Simulated assay, not measured.
Amino acid sequence: MIFEKVRDLVADRLNHNIEDVTMEANLKEDLGADSFSYAEIGMLLEDSFNVTISDLDLDQFQTVGDLVHYLEQHVTEV
Rank of each mutant, 00 (worst) to 15 (best):
M1S: 15
M1K: 11
I2D: 07
F3A: 07
F3T: 02
E4Y: 11
V6K: 00
R7L: 04
D8R: 14
D8L: 06
L9N: 00
L9Q: 00
L9P: 01
V10Q: 03
A11R: 01
A11G: 03
D12G: 01
R13A: 13
L14R: 08
L14C: 14
L14A: 10
L14F: 15
N15H: 12
N15F: 10
N15T: 09
N15P: 01
N17R: 10
N17W: 02
N17H: 10
N17G: 07
E19C: 08
E19R: 11
E19W: 03
D20I: 06
D20V: 05
T22C: 10
T22W: 07
T22D: 12
M23E: 14
M23F: 12
E24R: 08
A25H: 05
A25R: 02
A25L: 04
N26V: 12
L27I: 10
L27S: 07
K28Y: 08
E29T: 06
E29P: 00
D30V: 04
D30G: 03
D30A: 05
D30P: 01
D34V: 02
S35R: 05
F36A: 10
F36Y: 13
Y38D: 01
A39P: 00
E40I: 10
E40K: 07
E40C: 09
I41E: 04
I41Y: 01
G42P: 08
M43S: 06
M43D: 01
M43L: 11
E46I: 02
D47V: 08
D47H: 07
D47E: 15
S48E: 15
F49C: 04
F49Y: 09
F49A: 02
F49L: 08
N50C: 01
V51E: 12
V51P: 10
I53V: 09
I53C: 08
S54P: 02
S54C: 03
D55G: 14
L56G: 07
L56C: 00
L58I: 02
L58K: 07
L58Q: 08
L58F: 03
D59N: 15
D59R: 14
Q60C: 06
Q60W: 00
F61V: 06
T63M: 09
T63P: 05
G65E: 13
G65S: 13
G65K: 08
D66T: 07
D66G: 06
L67S: 06
L67W: 02
V68R: 08
V68H: 11
V68Q: 11
H69T: 15
Y70E: 05
L71N: 02
L71V: 07
L71G: 03
E72C: 12
Q73S: 12
Q73C: 05
H74Y: 12
V75S: 05
V75T: 14
T76F: 10
E77T: 15
E77D: 15
V78T: 13
